[in-house]
Write a protein that binds this DNA or RNA. Structure first.
Lengths: 346, 346
DNA sequence: TTGTACGCGTTATCAA
DNA sequence: TTGATAACGCGTACAA
């Protein structure tokens, strides 16, 4: 037998569909006895309102979507993802919402967007943000972007990537480093850093800003930019590339901690002493970074607050409130043990 | 203006609703020209089918739910959660599914179940599994349980918790330990270990099995059981409790790595040398455990495979296939550096 | 308390 | 072969 629906209950209980609906959602409009009777019948027949049909009528799903730029497995491997979701989760708890992880569908973010039954979206670090935002607009559902270049009129939550990157680079420069390799997260732009967008672009800007007063630029001979997959393995591979070269750097500045960690491990495996022979600074301050020996000097960003603020903003949007548009959370330099003065000036 | 619906497109394009629907879902039933025309009009008006209405008709949502026993923030703080979700995510990628995180709604798992618009559920470590499964059955949606006591006729994925716990305890016993404190994850059962269910219960069984041949039991004087919040802080607090007691143990066996890590840190802070003064063994083998100094001896469980297998099983269920019911994945002892022989036999 | 219209798209059936 | 008509799924809002 197919599952019971509202009509079945109404019949069995000898009342109307409306009465059954009220018994569940607005009991005060019915007499106590009727409610009790209806709920008994419903329970007996194992009935509860179909969530999809309900959403159809109410126009609400009780769900917010987290739009991901990559498949779920790749995303959850990001060490800062749990904290970010924790922040979102706090808002979900308070507001009684579920969280839908929305990866690209058959490779298409667009398809994913139009298919997701959600009341609103959070987007995370979208690359093709312009096209994607068009689709989101069409979909006519509130959304707030996280880690994307802010767009006029679209609520956004970002961290001060530029400032963080600048602080990291300044720290290296102030310690006396001049031969520095930047390890950028691989982007498909093949090192054309002026084409970087979003988080990458913002960080590059920060590096440039810091270099300027020292009369340096990314195009100087002493500064190099290498693209690197944002994994430990990527870092390991990059170390090989940069160490056996004529312009061996005295310091490496990575766009993510996980890259920095890969570099450090590879260096140590080769007998290179960090920071004496090579200074390293990362970005993100993932939980692991503080536990390493030596502990990683890095830029911390408030992932949890980022998730929390983004979700709060979305919830307010859902409630029809107009929101101050662009939020920017601070980053800060965490000086630990992987940066020292360079061994010798060249 | 409200968003366009299928009727608007049909009118504008001078065709029927049916044609519009076919243009999206079954283009081969229409002439190429018609399809092209309809899609143009749709694009122009920013139309795409409403996912909720679509689910209503098709009876599918394209979403599977992960039913959580606790609010999202608490769950994602679990160090093994990312790996578990990674496993699920792989299946999602292949099958074009989204993943809905379904925490209790206003404190009620039942409410969460009946409200979630999903094609099927994965449940994770449910405590009140009996009541919950009744609700799931009523909801008439396929589901597979993970980390719950297997129930007749319900597909389940588990790991060999009992075997793992047994191996951990045997290792300690074989090394010569006889004064052992078991740090159980707090359960609300206040130490009544015979009432433990699910993962906890299974692990306790393993400890008991290992103790028996040595003529020991949890009720022996030398063996103690202490309940502990499964956080690093919980471990720290427990160390205080167990160290300043008459029956100071020579070894601690924790039901989670994170507890073990807390104990280890607290011990080291007090100048207690691990493993010389105190041996420690954990459970889970979270990524951090291998990186500590000393590295934690523990039981590894295949979290990723667990998620993968559970999701695969659910997908087959969704496809109407009948499944072999109970899966049990192996656990294994990872001998590292936190277990040695006890200093002195008492 | 109830009857009825409604929301939106899909699909079986039917007509050209 | 191409397209239209109409029924359907399920619960909610509103007038009666």
């Amino acid at each position: 037998m197919p599952k019971a629906n509202i009509k079945d209950i109404a019949q069995k209980a000898g009342v109307s569909k409306t009465a059954v609906s009220f018994a569940f959602n607005n009991p005060s409009r019915l007499s106590e006895n009727t409610v009790k009777h209806i709920l008994e019948v419903a329970d007996e027949m194992g009935y509860s309102p179909d969530p999809v049909a309900r959403s159809m009528s109410t126009g609400k799903t009780g769900t917010i979507g987290l739009l991901l730029p990559q498949p779920i497995p790749e995303i959850v491997r990001n060490p800062f993802f749990p904290e970010f979701v924790e922040g979102i989760g706090e808002v979900c708890t308070h507001s009684g919402l579920s969280l839908l992880l929305v990866p690209p569908l058959k490779g298409s973010i667009r398809r994913a967007i139009v298919n997701a039954a959600v009341d609103g979206f959070l987007t995370l670090g979208l690359e093709e943000y312009k096209a994607t935002m068009m689709v989101l607009r069409q979909r006519d559902v509130p959304f707030v972007t996280v880690d994307s270049d802010p767009i006029e009129g679209v609520p956004a939550v970002n961290v001060d990537d530029t400032g963080g990157a600048q602080k990291a680079m300044e720290h290296l420069l102030q310690m006396g480093h001049r031969q520095i390799t930047i390890l950028a997260i691989r982007s498909g732009k093949r090192g054309q850093y002026n084409e970087y967008v979003g988080t990458l672009g913002a960080r590059i800007q920060g590096y440039i800003k810091a270099l300027e007063p020292f009369g340096l630029s990314i195009d100087s001979r002493k500064i190099r930019l290498v693209e690197c997959e944002s994994t430990e393995k990527g870092g390991v591979e990059c170390f090989q590339k940069i160490w056996n070269t004529r312009y061996r750097p005295t310091a490496v500045i990575a766009m993510s901690d996980i890259i920095a960690i890969g570099v450090m491990k590879a260096a140590q495996a080769e007998g290179v002493v960090v920071p004496r022979d090579l200074s390293i600074v990362g970005f993100d301050d993932i939980p692991l970074s503080g536990l390493l020996k030596p502990a990683l000097t890095t830029i911390s960003q408030p992932s949890l607050e980022k998730g929390d603020l983004a979700a709060k903003t979305l919830v307010r949007l859902l409630d029809g409130l107009i929101e101050p548009i662009h939020h920017c959370l601070p980053t800060r330099l965490i000086k630990r043990e992987t940066v020292s003065e360079p061994l010798e000036e060249k």
